[in-house]
Every structure is written in C-alpha cells, then in structure tokens.
Design a protein around this nucleic acid. Structure first.
Lengths: 341, 341
DNA sequence: TCCGGCAACTAGAGCGGTTTAGTACCGAAG
DNA sequence: CTTCGGTACTAAACCGCTCTAGTTGCCGGA
C-alpha cells in the first residue's frame, strides 16, 4: 500500500471519511473520544495531508511566489537578493509557508508565471520586486485578483500592497553630507535605468545638486554588475574634470569602483570620496571601508513577508508600509576633497 | 464563471472531457481537426492547467525542493548560496521547473518537510546540501524513494545521486603551495565542524602538514560567519608563535580575517598570508586581493540541477558526478613569509 | 453480406481531500 | 406519547484533470 489516506484511517477507525476530515482539521462534528482515536490512528499510520488534494478543494497552498526577471547570474552577485530571501524565509518559515522561486527572462514571462501559478493554486500570493517605470505587472496581478505586495514604492500600484523605503530622502541625505564636506562635483553610478527606484534616485540627485548649487550631477546607468560599475568609474575618472565624489547604487559596484580608483592611482578618500547605496559585509571589511547607506535588508524581507501574509489573510486590506529610511553610516571612504575650491 | 476548466472547453467544442485532455496533452485519440479546434478554443478561453488537479492524478509537480537547515541569516552572508541558487535557477527555469525553497531549524525539521512535500506531490525531487558526518537525511530520503541529489560527497550516501568537488585535493594544493613559498606554520579557520567537507578539509590539512614536515596544523571551527571568522583570526594572531599563513573556509571569513590583521597591525602578505577556500567578487576587489580556491559555484548549481532532472526522469539512474577540483588563483594576499627560518 | 479491425470518441472511475445534505439517536419539554 | 433541538455521524457530491474500458461508425476483405 502506498501512502495512507483519510479513507484508510476511516476504515481502520470504523468511521466515515468525513468524520476523519473533521477530526483532523479540528472542527466540530465529532466527539472528543472519536477525535482522539482518529488522531491517534493518523499518527500511527504516519498520515500526512496531500496538499494537491486540498488545493483542489480551494484551500490555501501555504506558499508564496517570488518571480524574478533578471539574468540568473545577478542573484549571486548582489547580496541584496540573498539578504531579502533570508528575511523572507525567516518570517515565512515560522508559519510553515514555503516559497516558490523562479527566475525568468522578462516581465512578460513573469506575468505568464503569475497566471499559471495563480490558476493552479500553487501559491497564495506574490512578492513583486524591481517595480519598473511603466510596469505591466501591476495590472496583471490586479486582474488576477491575487494577493501581492510590491517591494518598492511609493504608491501608484493600483490596489496592491507595498513596502517601500524612501530612496529620495536617502539620496538627499547623501548629497547633503557630501556638500557639507565641501564636494561640488558629485557623480552617480546608477543601477538599471528602467527601475523606479533608480529613477527616483537620479531625480533626487539632480534636484539636490540644483538646490545646493553644485556643479555636476551625472548619473551613469548600469546593470548593477561589478563589471559595469568598474567601467562607469573608469569613464568618470578619465574625464578632464573628475568628480570628487561618486555615489554607487550598490555595494558591489562601490567595491568595484574602489578597485578602479586604486588601479588608476586615485587616492580614496583624498582625491575621491565613495558612497555605497547598500550596506553589507563587503563595505565593512574593505580598506578603506566604505561609507554606506545602511538599510536592514533582512528586516525588510521580514516586513514584506508580514504584509503579504496579512493581505493573504484579509484580501480586502490595502497595506502600504514605509520602512525606515536608510541611514548614512560614515566610514573611511569619505572625506573633504583635497582640492576644494 | 471562474477559471475555465477542460469541462468548459469540452462543452464549447462539443466533445467530451477526455477528448480535450487528449488534445491538450498531445496524445493520440483525437483527429487532427478536432485537436486543432480544441487547442484554439483553449487559447481563446485562456485556459491553463490546474497543477493541483494534475498532481492528484500522480503527474509531475514540475518543481524541485531545496530545504536548508541553517539560520536564515547565513543565506545573506555567504555568496555561496546565492550563487548556487543562481546556477540552479538558470538550468531549472529553462525547463520551466520551479523551486520550492524553505529554511528550517534543523535536520529533523528538514526531514519532516521532505516527508510532507513528497507525500503531497509538491515537488519531484530534492537537493540536499551540507551533508553531515552522520546524516539521518540520507536514509530518510531513500526511504521516501524520492529522487534526490546530494551536493557534496564523495559517495556513501546510499543510492542517492551526488555532485561533489574534491575538497581534499584542493586543500592539499593550497598547503603544497604555501609550503613551497616557505611557510611552516599554517592555520585553518574552518566552517561548521559537523559538515562532511569541513572534516575532509581538516583531515587533508593534517595529512599534508605531516607529509610535508610542517610545524603546526590547527583548525579552528566556526559557523561560517564573519564574526566568528574574525574572532578565530584574533585568537590565532594573539598566540605566542603566530601562524604565517591562514586558510579560511569561506571568502567572507577571509575578508574578516584580513580586517583583523589590519586592525592588529599585521602586514598582509608580509607577515601573514591569507587564502580563501571560496572565490567571489569579494576576494577580487579587496586590497590586497585575496588568493583563493576558485570554483564556479554557478556552474556547480547548474550541474546539480542537471543531475536532479536526470534522476527525476529516470529514477533508476544513480549518478555520481565529480566536478572540477577548485583551482588556486594566486592574488596579492600570499607571499613567502618574511621571517622564514 | 457479414465480420474484424481500427480510428475517434465517450462515459465514468479515480486521485485525496472538503463540505453539504441528510439520518439516527438522545434528552427535555409540552 | 409526540415533538423539538441538538449532537454525532454517514453518504455522496465536488474540485479539475487523467486514464481506462467501452461504444460507435467506417472501411476493407472474404
């Protein structure tokens, strides 16, 4: 015989399948004596629920979906995703909720996966990352009527819940700090240009530069890889008038930039100050250590999980949570520019 | 009406459910004309299979499971997992196979999850990581009769498939290299002591030291965290006779060790050579850059996925794949010891 | 003309649960 | 003694799909 089913239990106890179902799900309809007997036999027979069968009946899948439309290789490069996963898992696994993970080519494929997993009751909700400027995924998810939470904001995702950090404020605080140190030419090695938060950071930089009367405000978009981060840094440092400070949209790129500076004989922080927009082990252990905007990505993952579980429990709720604004942790890579004028 | 089912299609086309099922699954039993008509209506109605219903009938879940028994926080710290995931995803998503991911407390909980997901047809197979010295998970998986591949080896996992790298040979090559440079006191900041590969590395170090007639061969176990890596380094460097070279079981710990050396005024590589057992962006971009054993973790993930898919396709197959031995990439953190005697 | 064989299709059981409608029984109230 | 109401339980439908055992109709061959 294969795995025991409730029918097997029912037969052994001498009751009907229905009674067994009631007993196992702790709902009324059986006496305490019978319930105890059924539970005992179930344990004895090593019975376990068949989630597919439950799903057929319309029950929860006890899983959430995370579909990422990036080249699979970026998963490994950026600590961000790993930490996010880490935070998500910490919260989800406490409730015995699993996570369905898939990396796809593009948003179109991503939407297709949303459709499939939803109609197959494979997951109870989705986590949407990397919101883009005109993002077709919002509408798709709303149309499916499936619980979802958008990581990154603010607002404007229709009725979807979201968890977001204030990128604008963060960028402003960085530029303010650099300006206060005496920097007048600040450059920005940005991430993927299609992403909303990249756009927000670029805009915040431009606005700050104007407000503070600084000279330069170039933002170079990249794909977040160390290679493009290094290339962008090389471009910036090869110019006639170099920036005296560079803000990187990720810690990996900042690290790569630091390497390029060393290679080109540009002293950090003497001739060039470096700020990373993301904090991790990497920024702490290098020499010089890198001044970073620190946000607790693991905690962020936890919050996202929380909000998603809430929305799943009560699909009416529209939660928009703003997480703590990343705060600047000053380390050795920033200093007043030597040649301030 | 909710989502369309094959019954809806059948009604619309004017055939039976069975005919629709045959048509959609490309099996004989319907004429080409009918098949075309059914496929068209299915597309028109935006039909998608309900995987739970299929799973009930015993079909593939088109998903594999990865259950990790480590504190969720380590996921974010170590590039290893992120890269592994990256490689796994690259291969799996090509076949539209998803991944069920869960982080649990301990091996016991892990085994329980194996039981549940297996009996619920939630996944078609498992990837087992971090094989331990006396590991109850092998027997559990075999008993369940579910396809699985063990990452780490060699052999001795009963009938389970495995993918492994030769840790012993790798460690030997490191110690040989250090000895050739003139080092006589080599220390080892190891990973979790319960893991098989940690044991193998420790044994390989002891054997090499004996074979080469070196002086010292201490291995300090840690939990892979940067904190314990730093602490272990502090311990080693506080001794009366310091090691002149330290081998770290992970890149994060090597980085932390490098930081500690700087903090204690120990010159690298002058007074201390550092080797990392894992390669990633981290080791490349620091100053000095760190000599590392480089293995392509992303490719490793791909191989694991391949083997698992094979074993799922043909459960009889017992595949044991040995991946390329990590090779030493020499960078700036290793040099002959200044005070060789 | 009749029969065998095959292609094309149908009916319906089955997968493992959940859930609803219905039944049997019991004690208390009228 | 009947009636009511509640508890404890059963039988069976149902979820969406797969798959087997039939059934039908048509064609070719003797």
């Amino acid at each position: 015989m294969g795995r025991p089913t409730i029918a097997d239990i029912a037969q052994r106890v001498g009751v009907s399948k229905g009674a067994v179902s009631f007993a196992l799900n702790g709902r009324p309809g059986v006496s305490e004596a019978t319930r105890a007997r059924i539970l005992e036999v179930a344990r004895e027979m090593n019975w376990r629920p068949h989630s597919a069968a439950r799903a057929l009946g319309g029950a929860r899948a006890e899983a959430v979906g995370l579909v990422i439309a990036r080249p699979a290789s970026t998963l490994g490069v950026e600590p961000f995703f790993a930490q996010l996963l880490s935070g998500l898992q910490a919260r989800l696994s406490r409730q015995q909720v699993a996570m369905h993970l898939l990396v796809v080519e593009d948003s179109e494929a991503e939407i297709e996966v949303y459709r499939e997993w939803t109609s197959a009751h494979r997951v109870d909700g989705f986590i949407l990352v990397d919101p883009k400027v005109r993002d077709p995924r919002f509408a798709a998810l709303e149309e499916l009527g499936v619980p979802a939470v958008v990581l990154g904001g603010p607002g404007r995702h229709g009725a979807l819940a979201s968890v977001w950090a204030d990128d604008r404020e963060a960028m402003v605080s960085v530029v303010d700090y650099l300006a206060a140190l005496g920097h007048r030419r600040v450059a920005h090695v940005a991430g993927l240009p299609g992403l909303r938060h990249t756009q927000r950071r670029m805009r915040a930089l431009r606005d700050s530069v104007k407000r503070l009367g600084l000279v330069d405000a170039v933002s170079l978009p990249t794909d977040f890889s160390d290679a493009e981060g290094a290339a962008a840094t090389r471009t910036l440092l090869s110019r006639g008038t170099r920036p005296t400070a560079v803000v990187y949209d990720s810690d990996v790129m900042a690290l790569a930039g630091l390497g390029v500076a060393g290679e080109m004989g540009v002293a950090v922080p003497g001739e060039l100050s470096i700020v990373a927009f993301d904090d991790s082990v990497l920024t702490r252990v290098t020499h010089p250590s890198i001044t970073s905007l620190s946000r607790d990505t693991v905690a962020l993952g936890g919050q996202v999980a929380d909000v998603l579980l809430e929305v799943i429990a009560d699909p009416g709720a529209r939660r928009v949570v703003k997480t703590g604004t990343p705060r600047l942790v000053v380390r050795q890579s920033t200093a007043p520019p030597l040649l301030a004028r």
